[in-house]
Amino acid sequence: MRDGLHHILGLATAFLLASIGAALADSSEEAREQKLERLVRQDCGSCHGMTFKGGLGPDIRAERMAGFTPSAIAAVILDGVPGTPMPPWRGLLSEEDALWIAEYLRKGGR
């Protein structure tokens, strides 16, 4: 009987811990995406415009981005475009971040 109770308690604890873990993972993923979204809108927006239609830098709206693969866009983000004001973001962004941004832009910032 005691063993049974222990077993149930153990399961419950494990389940609780797993749920907390998943929730934390979810919220940290959400936080990361929010951070990236803010970066793209606000900081990339310095040159590409907050609505991505361009400024000193070119138009990066979905219609134009559709012509590039996500990995090509990510490569430009990470390594910049030498000889232009587009700086390399490697060091500030991981490859995963850059790919997320590439997909985000191809979806028109959604």
Partner: peptide, 11 residues
């Protein structure tokens, strides 16, 4: 001084 420019993330 001919040194490589640091990345400029905002003009």
């Amino acid at each position: 001084n001919g040194e490589t420019k640091l990345p400029v993330y905002k003009m």
